[in-house]
Write a protein that binds this DNA or RNA. Sequence first.
DNA 1: GCCGAGTATGAACGACCGTTCACGCAGAAG
DNA 2: CTTCTGCGTGAACGGTCGTTCATACTCGGC
Lengths: 204, 204
Amino acid sequence: MVVNIRSSNQTRERIHDAGLALFNERGYTGTTVRELADAVDLTPGAIYNHYPSKESLLFAIIDRVHDEADTILSETLRGVGNDPVAQLEALACAFTAFHIARPRETRVANRDYIYLPSGERDSVVRRRRRVRALFAEVLRDGERRGHFSFGDLGSEDAVQAASMAILNMVVLVAEWFDPAGPRSADDTSALHGRLALRIARGGR
Amino acid sequence: MVVNIRSSNQTRERIHDAGLALFNERGYTGTTVRELADAVDLTPGAIYNHYPSKESLLFAIIDRVHDEADTILSETLRGVGNDPVAQLEALACAFTAFHIARPRETRVANRDYIYLPSGERDSVVRRRRRVRALFAEVLRDGERRGHFSFGDLGSEDAVQAASMAILNMVVLVAEWFDPAGPRSADDTSALHGRLALRIARGGR
DNA sequence: GCCGAGTATGAACGACCGTTCACGCAGAAG
DNA sequence: CTTCTGCGTGAACGGTCGTTCATACTCGGC
């Protein structure tokens, strides 16, 4: 048989999940391999049958949620027309729903990616930049076509600031959203879609 | 002489600064007392003449920047009338300027406060909540007086989401703002003031 | 029934962790 | 001049870190 990198995926997946939970609440550097092993009822050494290092587990977690984010964004974009207003609202709504559904994954990805070795960290940084560029592009497109306006803001190229405002609103929703609160995840996602339009002054 | 908790403040301050720089770029748990000692040309043991523990240094750093934030906010509020529109614009502008001026302090405070012992962490959480409440209160006040409107957003109590959108825009400005970029800190702060008004639909 | 591959154990590795402590030294106070 | 106090050193503390390894068990394929 060829070199088998993958292990019996069941255990590998349990380690992935436990790592996610622990990294989320203690941080990557604040989590030990022994805690991780305890969480999956294994010995520290056994972890290394499934991941070559603690860092590689962090990367697996972060890389996967970036894959999912990319999928969500491109599918959302594919499902809506080429009207920038509809695009922005749909993107902000869908991405908010995504962050509400995956609070631990996105928190670890956004907070602990700095602990990745430089090659993998660079790859993550590139992926993050691509998301920023996507939102900025929709805003710029909408401005060019007269649906959004930033001229009254008294600053040239306000698109960057506006797209970061939208993105930060979306990406940090899980820090305050309460699943037991009065507003549902769907409501909040839709609300963020509207707020994104306010920011771009594209409202109805 | 009475019990002297404070040490010769010069060295204490150098440790504070070095801790700030290191915690910022490596994270609290990713920073060693030995690295800290090296950065201030001291022996690890000497650190303990100035701070009783590594945790206490973290708390000193975080507590100070919270003090400064509170000062900025209350002075800003004192310097402007009681018009909610002016209040919101001034708060968003001043707080953005603050976060641009203190990127390391605010990043450490927002990212690493989770490593504080529970008593001190709770105190930090309370202070953060008070800032959130301040913005929410301005928005609610403005809505009551007809300057802001959230009724068209299709969600009851959109104030919370809107104030978090404003706060997250402001608090994370340092993650993308480039001091060497085309837009100055003052411009960006003013821009955030306007964007806050867009979010609250309080345009002029 | 044997074999080899996959997975686990438990002990151990050297390194490094936050913190302590006995001690030395400089300089202000008496 | 002596004493005391504040601040530093350097060595050491016990503990924990991420990782490795010899060994053993289990189980499907021959």
